[in-house]
Amino acid sequence: MSTTWVALLVLAAGSYLLKLAGLSLPAEVLERPVVRRVALALPIALLSALVAVQAVADGSRLVVDARVAGLAVAVVALALRANFLLVVVLAALTAAGLRAAGVG
């Protein structure tokens, strides 16, 4: 078996064990207030970072392109209380339209 396959399988096993470890923490650990605060704050930080990176990162560069326009439309849609699917579709249509027009 090639080194690539062995490293790939080690990555696979390790990735799974990390996921399982996260789900196997003892309940008493999770009942501590500080853990609850961390658990509530984590998705806020991670989702916000995911939005930022997904919107303007291109490899290791930051670029402003059609994605930012799509995200801006999503902000307006969310402020107007549009549902999830509409927000996502409007963002996609905005970016796709701009790219079809040769912008971004």
Partner: peptide, 26 residues
């Protein structure tokens, strides 16, 4: 990207984040 799917994923994350921004610390 032609179909704007990268922007859609960003918007999806934002839509999930939105309801959590209820107070100033958040």
């Amino acid at each position: 990207r032609t179909y704007g799917l990268d922007a859609a994923v960003a918007a999806a994350f934002l839509a999930l984040l939105w309801p959590r921004l209820g107070d100033r610390p958040a």
